[in-house]
Design a protein around this nucleic acid. Structure first.
Lengths: 199, 199, 199, 199
DNA sequence: TCCTAAACGAGACGGTACGTCCTGTCTTTGT
DNA sequence: ACAAAGACAGGACGTACCGTCTCGTTTAGGA
């Protein structure tokens, strides 16, 4: 009779117990997104999200490891998920349009992604997440566009230059991200095609 | 140094009151620098700096407005202050050497400046400080080098591209900052001179 | 309209559905007893009992209203159920033997019953349970023994004194409950027979 | 230059830094006392005390190790500190008056001390505190009164019986603590003088 | 044999309080 | 007047249990 009761139990097939409450999930993400937009990433708190979502803190911690993960999910669940890629006859114009569209989007989302990038510097694990789930797909999209405008071996560096310049301005705020800036990357300033070798 | 507003009074009044303890100042900066190097910017606390420096918290707050200011001063007091500018016969090689030297320095200081950039996203006032006292002088130095390699109207964008790419890689960590990367910015991939207009 | 539903159902004869799992019951009581003995009443948790018993929390709450109820049942299911009453030629020695036996039992069960008494102070409903199902029967047993040693009108107070002293020492821990203490209640210190009225 | 700044500092004479805020102390104790009276010990929370006292939680934890310590201090700072001892020509009447006075006080403080005794069963460290700072002085007071009524060797047991009976009734609630009960301990039921040895 | 109902393990849920940590301010004594 | 010490209000942290609530599964009658 002292025999182990647990041996009678079933293997854990991952489908046992009360299922996750998707309403709570959505409420949390919505609250997180609203919070980060209104107060800025640095002022977002788990307690605030929980309160706004009408949820227990533990419910957040059950599914996300940190504030950054919640906000990242919230951001990714938002329109930020979509990256527009243009494909016209003029590859260089596609690049320009990509930049313009990016700048447009950043007007709304800039503060949020800046906060995420900031946190990525502090939290190694999150940096990986941010890189894989957010930055990589954007880099890939730009690479696709760029690859039609420059030779294969220049694509990676070109993408670094373009997205680098964008992030640099976004983070440092030393100049605006507007249409004029998008124009600046063509017309002989930064070439998207290999020039004749000098000498 | 710049923040020492009372320094003028000491000059005027001479010996009125207890003079500022410069040992304390150095101890604070040293502790801040050590802390940020060891634990990463996100784990540095005012209390920790004060304890390590053998100093009262108030003494830090008397002279610096925030953790970021202390660390910024600490960093600026460090070797980071010096930006090497090369001036050889080959301007394009000067750019390459500038990048190589930058990468070299970032091996040590990378984690610190990343933390500063992170804080700059959260704290508007600090962003301004960081931009003016740290980033601007580096951008100016690079601009000087670049200006000998590309036409005047391309300099600003070129600097954004180069420093942007560097920061982008530094922050996102999607690739190394090594000599090969410095080489990538020449040799027909990203041109430093204007190409012939296409069409 | 709500009744409509039940109209189709069978009369509740209390015998429908899956019967109570007695193994679970025993596992719960065993886990509760073990937990309270090992960790002390204050550190016992419903979650701990449930985990140790290999049982869902709800299964405990289905049959018991509170932690104290479980532990009380566990204790009552244990040897504590039995109160030894001695009946020899010497009523005063019977009292002594009752005390000695009580002390003996308390060596094991003391911590548990202390926890129950503690909870009884907080939970009015439980206090009643505890009084009726645990304390009353012990008081009755002692009263039976004492009643052969003192006149009828002294029995109640005498029982209060004896059990009171025991509880007092048990709860306050200001002295041991050992044989010497059992002896102290006779031999002219506390008399079990009425003395001649003074004056 | 790496030399330890701390060697320049002064020895800690325990008188440095901002002194303890006595207003905060009093506010905490007052809030704790009010809370324990209104809600009962089990429902008192540190957060509640802190909020009522207009104090940070940390300030409580700085000076008291646990909720129990705060409440005990609060209770001891209250009138409970004072135990009335009577000294008339009739020692047996003094005992009766001691009991009557005790019962009187317990009408107000009963719930509180019951909660404290309850917690003492759960928290070993607190039990010690409670014993030394609360119960011991009361036992000593009763012992003084009793010692004039019974021979020296009976005092300890007599005190256990009297206070034991009181606590027993208080905790178990199986009978009232009124004047009639105080009377019951005299008049030949429980003798305060040693009887003639039986046999 | 199926149907209905209750009990079961599992575990997610909204909550409450915990005790810790750090912030930035304040208030003392010491130099 | 400044420095060191450290107490203060405030506020978020992440954890632990509470008691309740779905789930899918199991175990018994009764139809």
């Amino acid at each position: 009779v002292t025999m182990d009761r647990k041996q009678h139990r079933h293997l854990d097939d991952g489908k046992r117990g009360r299922p996750r409450d998707l309403e709570a999930r959505d409420a949390i993400l919505a609250a997180a997104l609203a919070a980060v937009r209104e107060d800025g990433y640095g002022n977002v708190t788990m307690e605030g999200i929980a309160a706004d979502a009408g949820v227990a803190k533990q419910t957040i911690y059950r599914w996300w490891a940190s504030k950054a993960d919640v906000v990242l999910d919230a951001v990714l669940a938002d329109a930020l998920r979509y990256v527009s890629v243009f494909r016209s006859a003029d590859p260089r114009d596609d690049v320009r349009r990509f930049l313009v569209a990016t700048f447009q989007r950043l007007k709304k989302t800039g503060p949020v992604v800046r906060g995420l990038m900031a946190h990525a510097q502090i939290d190694e694990r999150f940096r990986e997440q941010f890189r894989e789930r957010f930055l990589a797909m954007r880099r890939a999209a730009l690479a696709e566009v760029v690859s039609r405008a420059v030779p294969r071996e220049s694509v990676a560096v070109m993408v670094d230059c373009l997205y680098g310049a964008v992030w640099y301005r976004l983070l440092d705020d030393h100049g605006p991200l507007d249409d004029a800036y998008a124009d600046a990357f063509g017309n002989g300033r930064i070439t998207l095609t290999p020039p004749a070798r000098l000498k």
